[in-house]
């Protein structure tokens, strides 16, 4: 069905929905910038068993597993970091340890957004040229890592609110502001065994239902990866149009 065959009301609601899901996605960025996983997964995520969050390490499925990996485990890392930092910088005492861990800012550009003809879901892909920075660290060195990724995101309408259902994060470029050359350095690692391995694209690897690797960062010998193809116009969220295959019949 072409969009002109939809009712005018549906087309208007879908236009508004397209903007709403961009806002949901941006809220993720700003919550994540404060390492505020609690607000993110409490406020903008579906609590459905179908929800999923995937990264290089694999895919978490179902809200309980997503919460454990994205909130519980993430907070544990923040608390451990805080113990290192407070030892060096007493002024962090009394402050929330989570934003002190780092500001992880995954900016959003190159959006391709499609809202389903039935108006009940939306799908979007993004390129995210991001930065992850922190000032007070246990190593007594500030840092700003550059992390460029691709996102594939599915959203659903629940009780009049747009919520995340699936997120698939694909790390591509990991480097440091602004002293490294991510391509030449990788070639150096390939041709000089003394250089050691590349840094991991994530800090940890929580329990997953679908094991990884699901996407590998760029390297000279990496084959092309189209892990999160851009969304095409579609009728309804199903296994032909999703960033996470549904493992059971969708009711």
């Amino acid at each position: 069905m072409s969009k002109e065959q939809l009712s005018l009301s549906r087309r208007i609601e879908n236009a508004a929905a397209s903007q709403e899901v961009e806002n949901v996605k941006a809220m993720h960025t700003y919550y994540h910038g404060r390492s505020d996983a609690t607000s993110e997964w409490s406020q903008i995520w579906s609590r459905s068993d179908d929800c999923s969050w995937a990264h290089a390490f694999g895919r978490m499925r179902g809200f309980d597993q997503v919460w454990y990996g994205s909130v519980t485990s993430y907070d544990i890392m923040a608390m451990q970091n805080y113990i290192d930092v407070v030892d060096k910088y007493p002024e962090v005492g009394g402050k929330d340890p989570r934003p002190l861990s780092e500001a992880s800012v995954h900016t959003l550009v190159t959006d391709v957004v499609e809202v389903a003809e039935d108006g009940q879901s939306a799908r979007a892909s993004f390129i995210t040229p991001g930065v992850i920075h922190s000032v007070l660290t246990g190593m007594e060195k500030k840092y700003c890592n550059v992390l460029w990724e691709r996102y594939g995101s599915d959203f659903v309408l629940e009780d009049g609110e747009w919520k995340y259902l699936h997120e698939h994060v694909c790390p591509d470029i990991l480097t440091r502001l602004d002293a490294l050359n991510w391509a030449a350095d990788d070639y150096e690692r390939l041709t000089n065994p003394d250089r050691g391995a590349a840094p991991p694209p994530t800090l940890g690897a929580p329990p997953v239902s679908d094991p990884g690797p699901m996407h590998k960062p760029y390297s000279t010998l990496q084959e092309v990866q189209n892990t999160v193809p851009w969304p095409e116009p579609y009728k309804t969220l199903d296994n032909g149009n999703t960033y996470t295959p549904f493992v059971r019949d969708k009711q």
Partner: peptide
């Protein structure tokens, strides 16, 4: 916007 996003991809 979608077209240019697809071009970049």
């Amino acid at each position: 916007k979608n077209l240019m996003g697809k071009y970049a991809n």
